[in-house]
Design a protein around this nucleic acid. Structure first.
Length: 465
RNA sequence: GGCGGCGUGGCCGAGUGGUUUAGGCAGGGGCCUGCAAAGCCCCGUACCCCGGUUCGAAUCCGGGCGCCGCCUCCA
């Protein structure tokens, strides 16, 4: 059974969904004010793998991830570039999904926009005001966190210590420095919506509560995001639900981030590599492999060296797929790369499957799961080298299915070969048959110069790019 | 200041007290090959420091040292 680390309890707990056979998960989505970077990639890959593993186990998954399309930074960019916020949103939302598609991240089942939920957010804020836990000031409406039971649960701190560490300056009107804006009254040059408190726009922490509860219902299963969202974002989401007397997320899952020279990669530090840039130069699967080699809660260092390392590891997997002719499996999984239900029944090596599950059930121990897959790679080659093609094929197939279950489909197809290259290949085979190795080597050099990797196989020269 | 996390072999990176071992990459040796490539086999004997618990600790406890993060927008 799957066990997950839950930030609210600080412990790894058995994951028991609200409804048997069905999982409802909410993953904080992007603010579409800029291109996504590889940290966003890591974060989405984390929850994509969780989702795929749930699917692999035959569960249905309702996966909601929002798009924050109204925010200070969007407004700032629009004003700076003399465009509408809608224009900015359109551009970066498209870039976001293109990048996620490129990474093989499955699309959310729902991707609600904040601007589509403003009326509901106004209703939530009004309800909180009516309950006396929120109050109006000259610049907005704030939630009084001191009236919320268990505020600080996710931060694992009590109110006093949170208050003493607060770096945000308190205004005269705020009752506590920790109180946060549910509604921001309009300033000049901003998009606005009507509300009982005049024109304005919702605060950031409100949208996720409203959309999660609307689309997934009370006490939905799981809420995911980066560690840096724990406080204040997730704490404040929870606070709003609690203040309404509603049950919010049953499990809180948080991923570690991407570091550069040991320091967090973030928009504010401007030390990021964008995903479009990364994907233009690397196989997306190499990044997924790089991410999966560390546990999701650990930081990962992304450097040219670690990327090359992952690319070589991926090559080892693809080599297996080529040797054992895995085109069929690729075809099965390429349309989203999902392995669903209980595929293991069909021709999987049982011990390897059990080991895979054991690792994944342990709070998504993907490094352990991968180690098992790499063991299968060695064993499959070894069996095939020893002449046991049948056993080798079973192991290779198992490795490929498990890899695909992680969203990492192996590429077994031969590269498309142009007529000229094909001519050189057959000329080389002819020369080798004639034991004219000088000519054979010259032809090999020629192919290599054309960008091919040349290998000899039982059936003659094989080339690939 | 409060809270959280981390320090593992050349590099990345697992490790849920104890049998043989994470795994990947790089490196060395061998097999295979006309030579290569790919593949296979063998090789490193690592756990920041100091104590403690234990028959036994990388793993648990205490104390150091160092690093990172959250407490402000941030995946």
């Amino acid at each position: 059974m799957l066990h997950l680390h839950d930030t609210a309890t600080g412990a790894v707990r058995p994951f028991e969904p609200r409804t048997e056979g069905e999982v409802s998960m909410y993953v904080c989505g992007p603010t579409v004010d800029n291109l996504p970077h590889i940290g966003h990639g890591r974060f989405n890959l984390t929850y994509d793998v969780l989702r795929r593993y749930l699917l692999f186990n035959g569960l249905r998954v309702d996966y909601v991830s929002n798009v924050t399309d109204i925010d200070d930074k969007i407004i700032a960019r629009a004003n700076a570039e003399n465009r509408s916020t809608a224009d900015v949103v359109e551009q970066y939302e498209r870039a976001w999904f293109e990048a996620m598609d490129g990474l093989g991240v499955l699309r959310p089942t729902h991707a609600p926009h904040a601007t589509g939920y403003v009326q509901d957010m106004v209703a939530l804020v009004a309800d909180l005001v009516g309950r006396g836990v929120a109050y109006e000031t000259s610049d907005g409406v704030y939630l009084n966190v001191e009236q919320v039971d268990g505020y600080g649960l996710l931060a694992r701190q009590n109110l006093d210590s949170l208050r003493s560490g607060a770096r945000v300056e308190s205004t005269e009107e705020k009752r506590s420095p920790l109180d946060f804006a549910l509604w921001k009254k309009a300033k000049p040059g901003e998009p606005t919506w009507d509300s009982p408190w005049g024109p304005g726009r919702p605060g950031w922490h409100t949208e996720c509560v409203v959309m999660a509860l609307d689309l997934l219902g009370d006490a939905f299963d799981l809420h995911g995001g980066g560690i840096d969202l724990i406080f204040p974002h997730h704490e404040n989401e929870r606070a709003q639900a609690v203040a309404q007397g509603r049950d919010f997320s049953r499990y809180w899952v948080h991923n570690g981030w991407v570091t550069v020279d040991g320091t967090k990669m973030s928009k504010s530090l401007d030390n990021f590599t964008t995903l479009p840039d990364f994907l233009a130069h690397h196989d997306a699967r190499a990044y997924r492999l790089l991410v999966l080699r560390a546990r999701y809660r650990s930081p990962i260092e992304v450097t040219p060296d670690t990327v090359v390392d992952a690319e070589k590891g991926l090559e080892r997997l693809d080599t297996l797929a080529r040797r054992f002719g895995m085109e069929d499996l690729l075809a099965q999984t390429s349309g989203g790369y999902v392995v669903e239900g209980d595929p293991p029944a069909t021709g999987m090596e049982p011990d390897a499957l059990n080991a895979f599950r054991w690792h994944m059930d342990n709070d998504l121990d993907t490094p352990g799961a991968l180690a098992g897959i790499f063991d299968l790679v060695s064993a499959a080659h070894s069996d095939a080298d020893a002449g046991d093609g049948k056993e080798g094929h079973l192991l290779a197939h198992t490795a490929a299915v498990l890899s695909a279950a992680l969203g990492l489909p192996l590429r077994g197809q031969a590269s498309a070969i142009d007529a000229e290259s094909a001519r050189l290949v057959s000329a080389r085979d002819e020369a080798r048959r004639a034991k004219d190795f000088v000519r054979a080597d010259a032809l090999r050099d020629e192919l290599v110069a054309m960008g091919w990797t040349v290998e000899d196989t039982l059936s003659g020269t094989a080339i690939r790019r």
